[in-house]
Design a protein around this nucleic acid. Structure first.
Lengths: 213, 213
DNA sequence: TAGATTGTTAATCGATTAACAATC
DNA sequence: TAGATTGTTAATCGATTAACAATC
């Protein structure tokens, strides 16, 4: 099946499979059946087999799935073996937290650099990153020279669209948007993934309310 | 319709409606039809009317929806008028970022306090929070005394389950989990909402790959 | 071999879309 | 009033689940 024809629901389950399989690997489990996996993840065995079969035949009748092999297939489906390059745009509070806490390498991403407008930040080293913080004026050139795939957008809300425009112009391929605002990439086919903390908390809030409110 | 019978998809769209309506309010737009709203959000007018009609009749034939009124209805459906109380458990990098950047009050939540194991942090004031950082040993008593609704779990991964156990024991009602690990609340009916940054980035990575990989 | 479990086809279920009478 | 647009019922579409032949 063509990747673009895979439903969004399936795509969103793939990272969950990855997490669960990593967990099982840590526990030294070697194989797992769709039945067992389903029980552990709260999915039906059917759904699991359907999901995987969108991408190939990863199991073996009478045996189930070899966890390491399956993990590697899913990692590859997700692009973890492509070494996608990432830059951070806006080294504020959130940007720093990501640098300090998110293990880009573990998921196959390469953090190439970080940019900020504030001159006083330029030159500071960044944990796990080959280059120190750079000024925005060098950003466009950097993106095209290194063929950067993904920009993490973590500038203040008011600057989100201007920063986006710059990224679009520079030829970025995807934006991971932490600005808590809708950004517009025009008619480019740049992929955007938004992190809206408020959406998540409000969904939790909804659940907290019982049937009697 | 009973709240618990509303499908997950609908619940996840509610915060999106809220955001869009806030945006329209800012632009001083007064009314909107399902047609127009759908065009702006990439949804069909039918879906929008179906979604709203799960909760009541918020529109008017021939007119559409009054934006402020609709916004207020949705806010109420999401529990934003309940004043749910929140505490932060683990004042590390991520915890600090949330305190500094997330506008709890704007969404109707009350941040009551923050807790940490590290003695040197205890006593430091917290932006927009009535109490300074407290030690974990006082946490359980605090939760029951203030009847705390939601705990933001932002401790290091290794301490996630132990911290969860403490929260469950103290009678917390919901956990907003930033630990990037699966936490287990046993058979309690505590609501859990996970923020998995990696899931989000990997979904973006999947999209980045074309049909030929 | 016999038992287990896959991959896949068919059946069911639920969510989205279309249509339209009601009505502002 | 006439036009616009809702809320809702019916139709369609897609996703999940069940069933089962294939096979390790």
């Amino acid at each position: 099946m063509k990747r673009s024809e895979i439903s969004k629901n399936v795509v969103r389950r793939l990272p969950r499979y990855l997490r669960k399989l990593d967990e099982l690997i840590k526990l030294n489990v070697e194989r797992v059946s769709s039945n067992e996996l389903g029980a552990q993840m709260g999915l039906t065995p059917s759904q699991i087999r359907q999901d995987f079969s969108n991408f190939g035949e990863f199991g073996q009748q009478g045996y189930g799935y070899n966890i390491k092999a399956l993990r590697s297939e899913i990692a590859s489906i997700l692009g973890m073996d492509k070494g996608f390059s990432v830059i951070l745009v806006g080294v504020g509070n959130i940007g720093h937290t990501l640098i300090d806490n998110f293990n880009f390498a573990r998921f196959g991403f390469r953090l190439l650099g970080a940019f900020d407008i504030r001159k006083d930040l330029v030159g500071s080293p960044i944990q796990g990153c080959p280059a120190p913080i750079m000024g925005v004026e060098t950003q466009e050139e950097f993106i095209s020279r290194h063929n950067v795939d993904i920009a993490i957008l973590s500038v203040p809300r008011e600057k989100a669209q201007a920063a986006t425009d710059r990224l679009v112009k520079a030829g970025i391929k995807a934006i991971w948007n932490f600005t808590d605002t809708t950004i517009n990439v025009g008619d480019s086919d740049i992929k955007v993934e938004d992190i809206y903390f408020s959406d998540s908390l409000l969904a939790l809030s909804y659940l907290l309310l019982g049937d009697n409110d």
